[in-house]
Design a protein around this nucleic acid. Structure first.
Lengths: 115, 115
DNA sequence: CACATATGTCATAAAAAACTGACATATACA
DNA sequence: TGTATATGTCAGTTTTTTATGACATATGTG
């Protein structure tokens, strides 16, 4: 249900795009210039993904496409997080807290490093 | 920097694992039983990703591995979100709000549906 | 020790996501 | 109309992620 939001936020480039939109709406071309290492098609694909997640709202003016930030969907994530916090407080009180303090780098088995 | 957290949360199975751990720590085998459509190796891979993101903390007892939820990293995401909210309030006041209300389904160009 | 159990590691296959070039459309403006 | 500009679409490759089977280690118990 909220899957698309998480997927949208999982990519570093897309999070950067959202950051760039915090100061106000930007045209697609303006955004493309912010990512010199990426092609225009790529940036547009990221914008589509953000738009499907409703994190970006699009307004057209002539041949310009203005991309607006929409922070509302993050509310959903926030709600989920609040639930965790409340229940986690209980978990901490019941013994996990001391474990966390004593056992900071548990180091499980190895995983191949990405790249 | 907080990339691993977002990546970890992007997957539905991993979010379910975190939900399952809210009630308290679980052994790896217990978690495997919660996902009958997945193999043990797969669940362990997800646990590794969650552990690297520090969303899950591991405690060993004999041959048992107890996986604990750790909600702390979400605080980082929360902080980022709060900043957005504050600045978004400004954005809304300066005209985006009426746009959002009038223009609910902007519908950009088509993207192939996943699957 | 012999055996069951729980977890750890590795190589590989399948699926999904990221990225791109080439071409298409649509608007502005002389 | 002709041309420049900004965005839209498509087909394809590359990279990353997800998933799994086969085998290894490590612990508990008779």
């Amino acid at each position: 249900m909220d899957g698309p939001i998480w997927k949208a936020l999982a990519d570093e480039t897309r999070r950067s795009i959202l950051d760039a939109l915090v100061d106000g709406p930007k045209a697609t071309g303006d955004l493309v210039e912010l990512f010199p290492h990426l092609g225009r098609t790529t940036v547009m694909m990221h914008l589509d993904i953000l738009t499907e997640a409703k994190l970006v709202l699009v307004k057209r003016e002539g041949r310009m496409r203005w991309n607006h930030l929409n922070a509302m969907p993050i509310q959903l994530i926030y709600d989920r997080w609040v639930n965790w916090q409340v229940r986690d407080a209980t978990t901490l009180a019941s013994g996990l807290k001391s474990f966390v303090e004593k056992n900071n780098s548990p180091r499980t088995h190895k995983r191949k490093k990405a790249g």
